[in-house]
Protein backbone atom coordinates (compact mmCIF):
# COMPACT_ATOMS: atom_id res chain seq x y z
CA UNK A 1 0.00 0.00 0.00
CA UNK A 2 2.97 2.23 0.50
CA UNK A 3 3.52 2.09 -3.24
CA UNK A 4 0.16 3.54 -4.12
CA UNK A 5 0.26 6.43 -1.75
CA UNK A 6 2.37 8.77 -3.83
CA UNK A 7 -0.17 8.38 -6.60
CA UNK A 8 -2.91 9.45 -4.26
CA UNK A 9 -0.83 12.14 -2.73
CA UNK A 10 -0.05 13.64 -6.09
CA UNK A 11 -3.63 14.68 -6.34
CA UNK A 12 -2.85 17.02 -3.48
CA UNK A 13 -2.50 20.25 -5.47
CA UNK A 14 -5.80 19.60 -7.20
CA UNK A 15 -7.40 19.10 -3.86
CA UNK A 16 -10.13 21.64 -4.31
CA UNK A 17 -11.33 20.29 -7.61
CA UNK A 18 -10.77 16.69 -6.80
CA UNK A 19 -13.06 14.68 -8.99
CA UNK A 20 -13.52 12.19 -6.22
CA UNK A 21 -14.89 14.73 -3.80
CA UNK A 22 -16.56 16.88 -6.38
CA UNK A 23 -16.61 19.71 -3.89
CA UNK A 24 -14.69 22.78 -5.04
CA UNK A 25 -13.09 25.36 -2.81
CA UNK A 26 -12.17 23.33 0.28
CA UNK A 27 -11.42 25.72 3.11
CA UNK A 28 -9.38 23.31 5.24
CA UNK A 29 -7.62 20.10 4.49
CA UNK A 30 -9.73 18.58 1.76
CA UNK A 31 -12.67 20.40 3.14
CA UNK A 32 -16.12 19.63 1.95
CA UNK A 33 -15.51 16.03 1.12
CA UNK A 34 -16.16 13.10 3.41
CA UNK A 35 -12.94 13.16 5.46
CA UNK A 36 -12.16 9.41 5.53
CA UNK A 37 -12.25 9.34 1.73
CA UNK A 38 -10.17 12.46 1.30
CA UNK A 39 -7.06 11.07 -0.32
CA UNK A 40 -5.06 14.21 0.28
CA UNK A 41 -4.64 13.29 3.92
CA UNK A 42 -3.55 9.71 3.23
CA UNK A 43 0.16 10.39 2.92
CA UNK A 44 0.33 12.19 6.21
CA UNK A 45 -1.78 9.59 8.01
CA UNK A 46 0.27 6.73 6.62
CA UNK A 47 3.55 8.40 7.50
CA UNK A 48 2.55 9.17 11.05
CA UNK A 49 0.92 5.78 11.49
CA UNK A 50 4.13 4.14 10.31
CA UNK A 51 6.18 6.27 12.70
CA UNK A 52 3.94 5.88 15.74
CA UNK A 53 2.98 2.25 15.21
CA UNK A 54 6.54 1.34 14.29
CA UNK A 55 7.87 2.86 17.50
CA UNK A 56 5.03 1.25 19.43
CA UNK A 57 5.84 -2.14 17.93
CA UNK A 58 9.53 -1.76 18.76
CA UNK A 59 8.73 -0.71 22.30
CA UNK A 60 6.32 -3.62 22.73
CA UNK A 61 8.66 -6.25 21.32
CA UNK A 62 11.79 -4.93 23.05
CA UNK A 63 10.48 -3.83 26.42
CA UNK A 64 6.90 -4.67 27.30
CA UNK A 65 6.51 -8.21 25.97
CA UNK A 66 9.76 -9.51 27.52
CA UNK A 67 8.96 -7.73 30.74
CA UNK A 68 5.40 -9.04 31.18
CA UNK A 69 6.47 -12.43 29.85
CA UNK A 70 9.25 -12.42 32.43
CA UNK A 71 6.89 -11.46 35.22
CA UNK A 72 4.49 -14.26 34.33
CA UNK A 73 7.30 -16.77 33.87
CA UNK A 74 8.84 -15.79 37.16
CA UNK A 75 5.49 -16.16 38.88
CA UNK A 76 4.88 -19.57 37.33
CA UNK A 77 8.34 -20.72 38.39
CA UNK A 78 7.83 -19.34 41.84
CA UNK A 79 4.48 -21.08 42.23
CA UNK A 80 5.92 -24.37 41.00
CA UNK A 81 8.87 -23.93 43.33
CA UNK A 82 6.60 -23.15 46.25
CA UNK A 83 4.49 -26.20 45.48
CA UNK A 84 7.61 -28.35 45.40
CA UNK A 85 8.72 -26.85 48.68
CA UNK A 86 5.30 -27.49 50.17
CA UNK A 87 5.41 -31.11 48.98
CA UNK A 88 8.87 -31.52 50.42
CA UNK A 89 7.76 -30.09 53.75
CA UNK A 90 4.70 -32.32 53.75
CA UNK A 91 6.87 -35.37 53.17
CA UNK A 92 9.11 -34.25 55.99
CA UNK A 93 6.13 -33.81 58.25
CA UNK A 94 4.86 -37.26 57.31
CA UNK A 95 8.25 -38.72 58.07
CA UNK A 96 8.33 -36.93 61.40
CA UNK A 97 4.87 -38.24 62.21
CA UNK A 98 5.91 -41.77 61.29
CA UNK A 99 9.04 -41.46 63.42
CA UNK A 100 6.99 -40.12 66.27
CA UNK A 101 4.54 -43.00 65.98
CA UNK A 102 7.42 -45.45 65.92
CA UNK A 103 8.97 -43.83 68.95
CA UNK A 104 5.67 -43.86 70.74
CA UNK A 105 5.15 -47.57 69.99
CA UNK A 106 8.68 -48.32 71.18
CA UNK A 107 8.15 -46.36 74.34
CA UNK A 108 4.90 -48.13 74.96
CA UNK A 109 6.53 -51.52 74.48
CA UNK A 110 9.37 -50.55 76.76
CA UNK A 111 6.99 -49.23 79.38
CA UNK A 112 4.97 -52.44 79.37
CA UNK A 113 8.20 -54.47 79.59
CA UNK A 114 9.32 -52.44 82.57
CA UNK A 115 5.94 -52.85 84.16
CA UNK A 116 6.05 -56.62 83.54
CA UNK A 117 9.48 -57.04 85.09
CA UNK A 118 8.50 -54.87 88.02
CA UNK A 119 5.37 -56.93 88.53
CA UNK A 120 7.31 -60.21 88.29
CA UNK A 121 9.93 -58.95 90.69
CA UNK A 122 7.35 -57.80 93.18
CA UNK A 123 5.50 -61.08 92.82
CA UNK A 124 8.60 -63.18 93.41
CA UNK A 125 9.65 -60.98 96.33
CA UNK A 126 6.21 -61.39 97.85
CA UNK A 127 6.36 -65.13 97.29
CA UNK A 128 9.75 -65.39 98.98
CA UNK A 129 8.51 -63.33 101.86
CA UNK A 130 5.48 -65.54 102.18
CA UNK A 131 7.44 -68.79 102.15
CA UNK A 132 9.88 -67.37 104.63
CA UNK A 133 7.10 -66.27 106.95
CA UNK A 134 5.33 -69.57 106.54
CA UNK A 135 8.50 -71.47 107.41
CA UNK A 136 8.99 -69.29 110.44
CA UNK A 137 5.43 -69.76 111.50
CA UNK A 138 5.54 -73.52 111.11
CA UNK A 139 8.81 -73.61 113.07
CA UNK A 140 7.18 -71.58 115.80
CA UNK A 141 4.16 -73.82 115.73
CA UNK A 142 6.28 -76.93 116.04
CA UNK A 143 8.11 -75.39 118.96
CA UNK A 144 4.85 -74.45 120.58
CA UNK A 145 3.49 -77.94 120.06
CA UNK A 146 6.65 -79.34 121.54
CA UNK A 147 6.39 -77.15 124.62
CA UNK A 148 2.68 -77.97 124.92
CA UNK A 149 3.53 -81.66 124.83
CA UNK A 150 6.21 -81.18 127.46
CA UNK A 151 3.82 -79.26 129.67
CA UNK A 152 1.19 -81.90 129.15
CA UNK A 153 3.68 -84.58 130.00
CA UNK A 154 4.69 -82.71 133.08
CA UNK A 155 1.07 -82.11 134.02
CA UNK A 156 0.20 -85.74 133.50
CA UNK A 157 3.15 -86.78 135.63
CA UNK A 158 1.96 -84.52 138.38
CA UNK A 159 -1.56 -85.91 138.15
CA UNK A 160 -0.36 -89.13 139.78
CA UNK A 161 1.23 -87.28 142.66
CA UNK A 162 -1.91 -85.17 143.17
CA UNK A 163 -4.08 -88.24 142.99
CA UNK A 164 -1.87 -90.04 145.55
CA UNK A 165 -2.00 -87.10 147.91
CA UNK A 166 -5.74 -86.64 147.41
CA UNK A 167 -6.40 -90.34 147.82
CA UNK A 168 -4.23 -90.45 150.99
CA UNK A 169 -6.17 -87.52 152.42
CA UNK A 170 -9.51 -88.99 151.43
CA UNK A 171 -8.65 -92.37 152.96
CA UNK A 172 -7.34 -90.68 156.12
CA UNK A 173 -10.50 -88.63 156.55
CA UNK A 174 -12.92 -91.42 155.66
CA UNK A 175 -11.27 -94.32 157.34
CA UNK A 176 -9.40 -92.56 159.98
CA UNK A 177 -6.55 -94.83 159.39
CA UNK A 178 -3.46 -94.08 157.55
CA UNK A 179 -2.16 -95.68 154.50
CA UNK A 180 1.27 -95.57 153.27
CA UNK A 181 2.19 -93.68 150.28
CA UNK A 182 3.31 -96.80 148.55
CA UNK A 183 -0.01 -98.53 149.05
CA UNK A 184 -1.92 -95.59 147.61
CA UNK A 185 0.36 -95.35 144.65
CA UNK A 186 -0.08 -99.03 143.99
CA UNK A 187 -3.84 -98.68 144.29
CA UNK A 188 -3.92 -95.75 141.98
CA UNK A 189 -1.70 -97.47 139.48
CA UNK A 190 -4.08 -100.40 139.65
CA UNK A 191 -7.11 -98.14 139.25
CA UNK A 192 -5.71 -96.28 136.38
CA UNK A 193 -4.75 -99.56 134.75
CA UNK A 194 -1.09 -98.85 134.71
Amino acid sequence: MFVVTPAYAQSNPTEGTNSETGAPGGETHGGGSFPPFDSSTYASQLLWLAITFGLFYLFMSRVIVPRIGGILEHRRDRIAQDLDEANRLKEEADEAIAAYEQELADARKKASAIADTARDKAKSAAEAERTKTEAELSAKMAEAEKSIAAIKQKALAEVDTIAEETATDVVKHLLGGSVTKAEVAAAIRAASGK
Partner: peptide, 13 residues
Protein backbone atom coordinates in the same frame (compact mmCIF):
# COMPACT_ATOMS: atom_id res chain seq x y z
CA UNK B 1 4.92 17.91 -3.01
CA UNK B 2 3.73 15.39 -0.43
CA UNK B 3 1.65 16.72 2.41
CA UNK B 4 3.15 15.03 5.46
CA UNK B 5 1.81 17.50 7.99
CA UNK B 6 1.53 16.69 11.64
CA UNK B 7 -2.26 16.69 11.94
CA UNK B 8 -4.78 16.10 14.71
CA UNK B 9 -4.84 12.50 13.51
CA UNK B 10 -1.08 12.27 14.01
CA UNK B 11 -1.44 13.87 17.43
CA UNK B 12 -3.92 11.23 18.49
CA UNK B 13 -1.76 8.45 17.07
Amino acid sequence: GLDLSFTNSSLFM
